[in-house]
Simulated scan of single mutants.
Amino acid sequence: MTRDIDVDASGLASLSWLVPKLESWVIGNLRYSALPVLEKCIRDAFEYAIEKTDCVSLVVD
């Protein structure tokens, strides 16, 4: 897994120890809070598209 989240603590040297903890918290929060919501939206979109698509007409000329 790549980490695309950067926390910039420049100018806050006394809080630099907090950076790894903050990154872990943000990643964990996104994974366990936002990901299920995003997955549901994607699943609902696919189900809607499947209902509205006439697959037979796509295969038969």
Rank of each mutant, 00 (worst) to 15 (best):
D6W: 06
D6F: 12
V7G: 00
D8H: 06
D8I: 08
A9G: 03
A9I: 01
A9P: 01
A9Y: 02
S10G: 04
S10F: 02
S10A: 13
S10K: 07
S10T: 12
S10M: 03
G11S: 07
G11Y: 13
G11W: 14
L12E: 12
L12F: 15
L12G: 03
L12W: 09
A13S: 12
A13W: 14
S14P: 04
S14F: 15
S14D: 12
S14W: 13
L15M: 06
L15C: 12
L15I: 01
L15Y: 15
L15N: 13
S16M: 06
W17M: 06
W17L: 07
W17S: 14
W17Q: 07
W17G: 11
L18Y: 10
L18H: 03
V19L: 00
V19N: 00
K21M: 15
K21I: 06
L22C: 03
L22S: 02
L22Y: 01
L22I: 11
E23K: 13
E23N: 04
S24F: 10
W25D: 11
W25V: 05
V26D: 00
V26H: 03
V26C: 05
V26E: 01
V26L: 15
I27D: 13
I27C: 05
L30S: 02
L30E: 03
R31I: 03
R31M: 02
R31K: 11
R31L: 01
Y32K: 05
Y32P: 12
Y32A: 14
Y32G: 15
S33P: 01
A34P: 06
A34H: 07
L35N: 04
L35C: 07
P36M: 01
P36I: 01
P36L: 02
P36Y: 04
P36D: 04
V37N: 05
V37G: 03
L38T: 04
E39C: 07
E39N: 09
E39I: 04
K40W: 06
K40A: 15
K40Q: 15
K40T: 09
K40N: 11
C41F: 14
C41D: 07
I42Q: 07
I42R: 07
I42P: 07
I42H: 11
R43I: 15
R43V: 14
R43E: 11
D44F: 12
D44P: 13
D44M: 09
A45K: 04
A45F: 05
A45Q: 05
F46E: 04
F46Q: 03
E47K: 08
E47H: 07
E47L: 14
E47M: 13
Y48W: 10
Y48V: 02
Y48S: 10
A49P: 01
A49I: 06
A49C: 12
I50R: 11
I50A: 09
E51I: 08
E51P: 10
K52F: 13
K52M: 13
K52P: 03
K52V: 06
K52L: 13
T53Q: 07
T53H: 09
T53R: 05
T53N: 10
T53M: 11
T53V: 12
T53E: 10
